[in-house]
């Protein structure tokens, strides 16, 4: 694994996505976000800085996930179907370097989106006299890492099914991963030993997305155990690596017809 090669591929993947209309979309969503923050904080009761933060972080999380899912589903699929992958793999580049490079490139776009929308959000937050709290940065970081994990999940499915199914599977995994811990505390599940076992088992296999959602802490408690923060950081990175490795294995053994 030569990281230099992966970074070159990442760079040009980034340039390619950047030059396709996505930047316009990101900027547009920034403007929509600005308007949204303005309207909501102007016309609602309560603490406007909090609302700006709430809307901003929510919007950030939504758009990075959307980009991760829709661009992730086509990231490798387009290369395989239009066979542009041949042009790259006929050079001294391994399939794993190619995969890692593509992921780096799209992650760069996700990062760019995260940074831009975070700037918009914090500007509004400060405009309404919000006070800095390190949890804001944590929340932004978690959102970014979560979107990378989602990207890797959808990428994996895109290698074994078609684009539409990959999107559907990934959204299902996200939704069930988000809800699974909640399911464990439902009375119906609690009272049934077998069901508890099954749900617990599933909760180990699919990532628990509710862990990354720390917006409520940012908004209300304004503090969170740093062990928890580091733990979820490790958790999302571990899951990301697992999906990356599995996708690498799938891509390495595939006939690129």
């Amino acid at each position: 694994m030569n990281f230099g090669k992966a970074i070159t591929i990442g760079k040009f993947t980034f340039i390619e996505i950047y030059k396709s209309k996505i930047m316009i979309n990101i900027l547009l969503s920034g403007i929509v976000l600005a308007l949204l923050c303005y309207i909501v904080s102007e016309f609602s009761f309560g603490n406007p800085s909090k609302i700006a933060l709430d809307v901003g972080l929510g919007f950030l999380s939504l758009t990075t996930k959307a980009i991760a899912i829709f661009f992730g589903a086509t990231l490798l699929k387009n290369e395989l179907e239009s066979r542009t992958i041949y042009l790259i793999l006929s050079n001294p580049v391994s399939r794993v370097e190619f995969l890692v490079g593509k992921v780096l490139g799209l992650s760069g776009i996700l990062l760019l989106n995260t940074i831009l929308l975070s700037i918009f959000t914090t500007l509004f937050y400060y405009y309404w006299d919000g006070v800095w709290n390190s949890l804001i940065a944590w929340s932004i970081l978690q959102t970014f890492l979560e979107s990378v994990l989602i990207l890797l999940i959808v990428l994996f499915f895109s290698l074994i099914t078609n684009i539409n199914l990959a999107i559907i599977f990934s959204i299902s995994i996200y939704v069930s991963g988000y809800a699974i811990r909640g399911a464990l505390s439902l009375p119906d599940v609690k009272s049934n030993v077998a069901l508890t076992k099954v749900v617990t088992l599933i909760s180990y296999v699919i990532p628990n997305f509710s862990l990354f959602d720390i917006k409520n802490f940012v908004l209300y408690k304004q503090e969170l155990d740093s062990m928890y923060l580091l733990g979820t950081l490790g958790y999302s990175i571990t899951f990301s690596l697992i999906f990356l490795v599995v996708s690498s294995l799938v891509l390495s053994s595939k006939d690129l017809n």
Binding site: N2, F12, I15, E16, K19, S20, S82, R83, T84, Y86, L87, S90, N91, P92, V93, S94
Partner: peptide, 26 residues
């Protein structure tokens, strides 16, 4: 090894497949 070998190979595919949004120079 593969890396050295592929450095010494130039390939032109059957149909030109390309990255639509890159320029020729890129």
């Amino acid at each position: 090894n593969r890396s050295e070998i592929f450095k010494n190979i130039g390939y032109l595919p059957e149909r030109p497949y390309f990255y639509a949004d890159l320029t020729g120079r890129e």
